[in-house]
Amino acid sequence: MAENPNVCLSLESRPENVLIVRQVLSGVAEAAGINALELNDISTAVSEACNNVVQHAYGDAHGPMEVELYLQPGTLCAIVRDHGAGIRPLIDGAGEEGAVGIGLPLILALATRVEFVDPPGGGLEVHLEFKVTAEHTLTVPAGSIPAWSRHSTSDLADGTVRLDIAPAEIVRAVMGRVVCALAARAAFSTDGIAHAQELADSLAAHTANPPGTGHLRVGIIPAPGARALEMRVGPLRSGAELGDLEHVLSRLAEDYSVTRDGPSEVLAVRLTETR
Protein backbone atom coordinates (compact mmCIF):
# COMPACT_ATOMS: atom_id res chain seq x y z
CA MET A 1 0.00 0.00 0.00
CA ALA A 2 1.19 3.46 -0.85
CA GLU A 3 2.89 5.44 1.86
CA ASN A 4 0.78 8.55 1.61
CA PRO A 5 -2.98 8.47 1.85
CA ASN A 6 -5.23 11.05 0.19
CA VAL A 7 -7.21 11.33 3.36
CA CYS A 8 -6.30 10.52 6.90
CA LEU A 9 -9.18 10.91 9.32
CA SER A 10 -9.11 10.62 13.11
CA LEU A 11 -12.14 10.74 15.32
CA GLU A 12 -13.54 9.09 18.38
CA SER A 13 -15.17 5.69 18.04
CA ARG A 14 -18.74 6.85 18.53
CA PRO A 15 -21.74 5.68 16.52
CA GLU A 16 -22.52 9.19 15.27
CA ASN A 17 -19.02 9.50 13.82
CA VAL A 18 -19.59 6.77 11.25
CA LEU A 19 -21.67 9.37 9.44
CA ILE A 20 -18.58 11.61 9.22
CA VAL A 21 -16.62 8.77 7.64
CA ARG A 22 -19.34 8.36 5.04
CA GLN A 23 -19.38 12.09 4.33
CA VAL A 24 -15.63 11.98 3.73
CA LEU A 25 -16.07 9.03 1.36
CA SER A 26 -18.79 10.90 -0.54
CA GLY A 27 -16.51 13.92 -0.85
CA VAL A 28 -13.63 11.85 -2.17
CA ALA A 29 -15.95 10.06 -4.59
CA GLU A 30 -17.28 13.36 -5.88
CA ALA A 31 -13.81 14.80 -6.40
CA ALA A 32 -12.48 11.65 -8.05
CA GLY A 33 -15.58 11.03 -10.15
CA ILE A 34 -16.30 7.63 -8.62
CA ASN A 35 -19.83 6.59 -9.56
CA ALA A 36 -22.72 6.22 -7.16
CA LEU A 37 -22.82 2.42 -7.37
CA GLU A 38 -19.19 2.02 -6.45
CA LEU A 39 -19.50 4.62 -3.72
CA ASN A 40 -22.45 2.74 -2.24
CA ASP A 41 -20.43 -0.49 -2.08
CA ILE A 42 -17.44 1.28 -0.55
CA SER A 43 -19.50 3.29 1.87
CA THR A 44 -21.46 0.26 3.07
CA ALA A 45 -18.35 -1.88 3.63
CA VAL A 46 -16.30 0.86 5.31
CA SER A 47 -19.28 1.72 7.54
CA GLU A 48 -19.40 -1.90 8.69
CA ALA A 49 -15.70 -1.90 9.51
CA CYS A 50 -16.21 1.34 11.47
CA ASN A 51 -19.29 -0.03 13.24
CA ASN A 52 -17.12 -2.87 14.39
CA VAL A 53 -14.59 -0.44 15.88
CA VAL A 54 -17.39 1.52 17.54
CA GLN A 55 -18.94 -1.56 19.09
CA HIS A 56 -16.02 -3.78 19.93
CA ALA A 57 -12.61 -2.11 19.87
CA TYR A 58 -12.77 -0.46 23.28
CA GLY A 59 -15.34 -2.47 25.17
CA ASP A 60 -17.90 -0.10 26.57
CA ALA A 61 -15.55 2.88 26.28
CA HIS A 62 -14.48 4.91 23.26
CA GLY A 63 -11.12 5.49 21.69
CA PRO A 64 -9.53 6.71 18.51
CA MET A 65 -10.81 5.49 15.16
CA GLU A 66 -8.71 6.23 12.10
CA VAL A 67 -9.62 5.91 8.48
CA GLU A 68 -7.12 6.29 5.67
CA LEU A 69 -8.08 6.46 2.02
CA TYR A 70 -5.75 5.80 -0.87
CA LEU A 71 -6.79 6.56 -4.42
CA GLN A 72 -4.82 4.65 -6.99
CA PRO A 73 -5.52 4.06 -10.66
CA GLY A 74 -8.48 1.68 -10.75
CA THR A 75 -8.48 1.12 -7.01
CA LEU A 76 -9.53 2.74 -3.80
CA CYS A 77 -8.04 1.35 -0.61
CA ALA A 78 -9.36 2.07 2.84
CA ILE A 79 -7.72 1.25 6.12
CA VAL A 80 -9.86 1.32 9.24
CA ARG A 81 -7.69 1.30 12.34
CA ASP A 82 -8.20 1.26 16.07
CA HIS A 83 -5.91 0.99 19.05
CA GLY A 84 -8.14 -1.32 20.97
CA ALA A 85 -8.61 -4.96 21.69
CA GLY A 86 -6.84 -6.33 18.64
CA ILE A 87 -8.09 -9.29 16.64
CA ARG A 88 -11.57 -9.95 17.86
CA PRO A 89 -14.64 -11.67 16.64
CA LEU A 90 -16.08 -9.50 13.92
CA ILE A 91 -19.63 -9.66 15.02
CA ASP A 92 -21.80 -6.64 15.20
CA GLY A 93 -25.30 -5.32 15.27
CA ALA A 94 -25.87 -6.38 18.85
CA GLY A 95 -29.45 -5.77 19.79
CA GLU A 96 -30.52 -5.39 16.20
CA GLU A 97 -32.69 -8.23 15.15
CA GLY A 98 -31.24 -10.31 12.37
CA ALA A 99 -28.05 -8.30 12.21
CA VAL A 100 -25.63 -10.36 14.22
CA GLY A 101 -22.84 -11.59 12.05
CA ILE A 102 -23.74 -9.41 9.09
CA GLY A 103 -20.70 -7.15 9.20
CA LEU A 104 -18.00 -9.54 8.10
CA PRO A 105 -19.90 -11.34 5.32
CA LEU A 106 -21.06 -7.96 4.09
CA ILE A 107 -17.51 -6.61 3.94
CA LEU A 108 -16.30 -9.78 2.23
CA ALA A 109 -19.07 -9.58 -0.34
CA LEU A 110 -18.44 -5.94 -1.23
CA ALA A 111 -14.67 -5.44 -1.17
CA THR A 112 -12.41 -7.02 -3.76
CA ARG A 113 -9.78 -7.73 -1.14
CA VAL A 114 -9.90 -7.71 2.64
CA GLU A 115 -7.02 -8.12 5.02
CA PHE A 116 -6.84 -8.04 8.80
CA VAL A 117 -3.61 -6.69 10.15
CA ASP A 118 -2.32 -6.80 13.68
CA PRO A 119 -0.33 -3.54 13.80
CA PRO A 120 2.81 -3.34 15.96
CA GLY A 121 1.34 -0.83 18.41
CA GLY A 122 -1.69 -3.00 19.17
CA GLY A 123 -5.22 -2.63 17.94
CA LEU A 124 -6.57 -3.81 14.62
CA GLU A 125 -6.35 -2.65 11.02
CA VAL A 126 -8.86 -3.72 8.43
CA HIS A 127 -7.56 -3.15 4.91
CA LEU A 128 -10.25 -2.95 2.26
CA GLU A 129 -9.67 -2.73 -1.44
CA PHE A 130 -12.25 -1.74 -4.03
CA LYS A 131 -12.16 -1.62 -7.81
CA VAL A 132 -13.24 1.82 -9.00
CA THR A 133 -13.58 3.57 -12.30
CA ALA A 134 -12.54 7.05 -11.20
CA GLU A 135 -12.66 9.84 -13.74
CA HIS A 136 -9.75 11.73 -12.26
CA THR A 137 -6.43 10.66 -10.86
CA LEU A 138 -5.68 12.50 -7.68
CA THR A 139 -2.09 11.96 -6.82
CA VAL A 140 -0.65 12.77 -3.47
CA PRO A 141 2.69 14.48 -3.94
CA ALA A 142 5.55 12.15 -3.11
CA GLY A 143 6.98 12.76 0.30
CA SER A 144 3.88 14.47 1.67
CA ILE A 145 3.09 12.60 4.82
CA PRO A 146 -0.04 13.35 6.77
CA ALA A 147 1.64 14.82 9.78
CA TRP A 148 -1.28 15.39 11.97
CA SER A 149 -4.03 12.86 12.21
CA ARG A 150 -1.80 9.90 11.97
CA HIS A 151 0.49 10.90 14.77
CA SER A 152 -1.80 12.42 17.31
CA THR A 153 -4.73 10.31 18.28
CA SER A 154 -5.22 11.74 21.73
CA ASP A 155 -7.71 14.43 22.65
CA LEU A 156 -10.48 13.24 20.42
CA ALA A 157 -12.86 12.90 23.34
CA ASP A 158 -14.10 16.49 23.00
CA GLY A 159 -15.59 15.56 19.64
CA THR A 160 -12.64 16.76 17.57
CA VAL A 161 -12.48 15.50 14.03
CA ARG A 162 -9.05 15.65 12.43
CA LEU A 163 -8.31 15.39 8.76
CA ASP A 164 -5.30 15.47 6.51
CA ILE A 165 -6.34 15.96 2.90
CA ALA A 166 -4.39 15.94 -0.35
CA PRO A 167 -4.30 16.91 -3.13
CA ALA A 168 -6.01 20.29 -3.24
CA GLU A 169 -8.68 19.02 -5.67
CA ILE A 170 -10.46 17.00 -3.02
CA VAL A 171 -10.30 19.54 -0.19
CA ARG A 172 -13.45 21.42 -1.07
CA ALA A 173 -15.73 18.41 -1.45
CA VAL A 174 -14.46 16.69 1.68
CA MET A 175 -14.29 19.73 3.94
CA GLY A 176 -17.70 21.05 2.86
CA ARG A 177 -19.38 17.78 3.80
CA VAL A 178 -17.61 17.35 7.10
CA VAL A 179 -18.32 20.94 8.11
CA CYS A 180 -21.99 20.57 7.23
CA ALA A 181 -22.33 17.39 9.28
CA LEU A 182 -20.50 18.85 12.27
CA ALA A 183 -22.44 22.12 12.13
CA ALA A 184 -25.60 20.00 12.26
CA ARG A 185 -24.16 18.21 15.28
CA ALA A 186 -23.37 21.55 16.91
CA ALA A 187 -27.13 22.21 16.76
CA PHE A 188 -26.81 24.91 14.10
CA SER A 189 -29.96 25.89 12.28
CA THR A 190 -30.06 25.48 8.53
CA ASP A 191 -29.11 29.17 8.23
CA GLY A 192 -26.07 28.56 10.40
CA ILE A 193 -25.17 25.48 8.39
CA ALA A 194 -25.37 27.46 5.15
CA HIS A 195 -22.95 29.99 6.66
CA ALA A 196 -20.62 27.22 7.78
CA GLN A 197 -20.65 25.74 4.29
CA GLU A 198 -19.94 29.12 2.75
CA LEU A 199 -17.01 29.57 5.08
CA ALA A 200 -15.72 26.07 4.36
CA ASP A 201 -15.83 26.86 0.64
CA SER A 202 -13.83 30.04 1.11
CA LEU A 203 -11.34 28.27 3.34
CA ALA A 204 -10.92 25.50 0.79
CA ALA A 205 -10.36 28.05 -1.96
CA HIS A 206 -7.89 29.99 0.11
CA THR A 207 -5.90 27.15 1.56
CA ALA A 208 -5.84 25.10 -1.61
CA ASN A 209 -2.16 24.89 -2.19
CA PRO A 210 -0.77 24.59 -5.66
CA PRO A 211 -0.67 20.93 -6.66
CA GLY A 212 2.36 19.22 -5.22
CA THR A 213 2.57 21.01 -1.90
CA GLY A 214 1.10 18.42 0.37
CA HIS A 215 -1.64 17.74 2.83
CA LEU A 216 -4.00 20.28 4.28
CA ARG A 217 -4.62 19.76 7.97
CA VAL A 218 -8.07 20.42 9.29
CA GLY A 219 -9.33 20.12 12.84
CA ILE A 220 -12.94 20.77 13.74
CA ILE A 221 -14.62 20.72 17.14
CA PRO A 222 -18.39 20.98 17.34
CA ALA A 223 -19.74 22.46 20.57
CA PRO A 224 -23.47 21.72 20.68
CA GLY A 225 -23.92 23.40 24.07
CA ALA A 226 -22.59 26.68 22.75
CA ARG A 227 -23.94 26.18 19.23
CA ALA A 228 -20.41 26.73 18.06
CA LEU A 229 -17.91 25.22 15.67
CA GLU A 230 -14.20 25.68 16.06
CA MET A 231 -11.92 25.07 13.13
CA ARG A 232 -8.18 25.03 12.61
CA VAL A 233 -6.99 24.92 9.05
CA GLY A 234 -3.48 25.06 7.70
CA PRO A 235 -1.08 25.61 6.21
CA LEU A 236 -2.44 28.77 4.65
CA ARG A 237 -1.32 29.53 1.13
CA SER A 238 2.18 30.68 1.75
CA GLY A 239 2.87 34.40 1.71
CA ALA A 240 -0.65 35.31 0.62
CA GLU A 241 -2.93 37.81 2.25
CA LEU A 242 -6.24 36.55 3.59
CA GLY A 243 -7.83 38.69 0.87
CA ASP A 244 -11.39 37.67 0.05
CA LEU A 245 -11.39 35.20 2.88
CA GLU A 246 -11.08 38.09 5.30
CA HIS A 247 -14.42 39.51 4.14
CA VAL A 248 -16.09 36.15 4.59
CA LEU A 249 -14.49 35.72 7.99
CA SER A 250 -15.47 39.13 9.28
CA ARG A 251 -19.02 38.57 8.08
CA LEU A 252 -19.51 35.03 9.38
CA ALA A 253 -17.00 34.20 12.09
CA GLU A 254 -17.34 35.19 15.70
CA ASP A 255 -13.61 35.20 16.06
CA TYR A 256 -10.55 34.26 14.03
CA SER A 257 -6.80 34.45 14.23
CA VAL A 258 -3.75 33.39 12.31
CA THR A 259 -1.03 31.69 14.23
CA ARG A 260 2.35 30.39 13.26
CA ASP A 261 2.85 26.67 13.49
CA GLY A 262 6.44 25.85 12.65
CA PRO A 263 7.15 27.07 9.17
CA SER A 264 3.53 27.54 8.22
CA GLU A 265 0.54 29.63 9.18
CA VAL A 266 -2.63 28.18 10.59
CA LEU A 267 -6.03 29.83 10.72
CA ALA A 268 -8.23 29.34 13.76
CA VAL A 269 -11.91 30.23 13.35
CA ARG A 270 -14.82 30.18 15.73
CA LEU A 271 -18.25 30.12 14.22
CA THR A 272 -21.40 30.50 16.30
CA GLU A 273 -25.04 30.29 15.49
CA THR A 274 -26.08 33.56 17.12
CA ARG A 275 -23.80 35.57 14.91
Binding site: L19, A181, A184
Partner: peptide
Protein backbone atom coordinates in the same frame (compact mmCIF):
# COMPACT_ATOMS: atom_id res chain seq x y z
CA UNK B 1 -36.36 31.09 12.93
CA UNK B 2 -34.63 28.47 10.84
CA UNK B 3 -34.97 24.88 12.10
CA UNK B 4 -32.11 22.59 13.08
CA UNK B 5 -31.33 19.43 11.16
CA UNK B 6 -32.83 17.43 14.01
CA UNK B 7 -36.10 19.33 13.77
CA UNK B 8 -36.34 18.78 10.01
CA UNK B 9 -35.46 15.11 10.43
CA UNK B 10 -38.20 14.68 13.00
CA UNK B 11 -40.72 16.57 10.89
CA UNK B 12 -40.04 14.55 7.74
CA UNK B 13 -39.31 11.28 9.53
CA UNK B 14 -35.89 11.07 7.93
CA UNK B 15 -32.65 10.37 9.71
CA UNK B 16 -30.25 13.25 10.24
CA UNK B 17 -27.85 11.91 7.65
CA UNK B 18 -30.53 12.02 4.99
CA UNK B 19 -31.26 15.64 5.87
CA UNK B 20 -27.54 16.47 5.79
CA UNK B 21 -27.21 14.88 2.36
CA UNK B 22 -30.20 16.87 1.21
CA UNK B 23 -28.71 20.13 2.50
CA UNK B 24 -25.53 19.23 0.66
CA UNK B 25 -27.55 18.76 -2.49
CA UNK B 26 -29.40 22.03 -2.00
CA UNK B 27 -26.06 23.78 -1.81
Amino acid sequence: RAPTVGQIAQFLELDTEEVIDALQAIQ
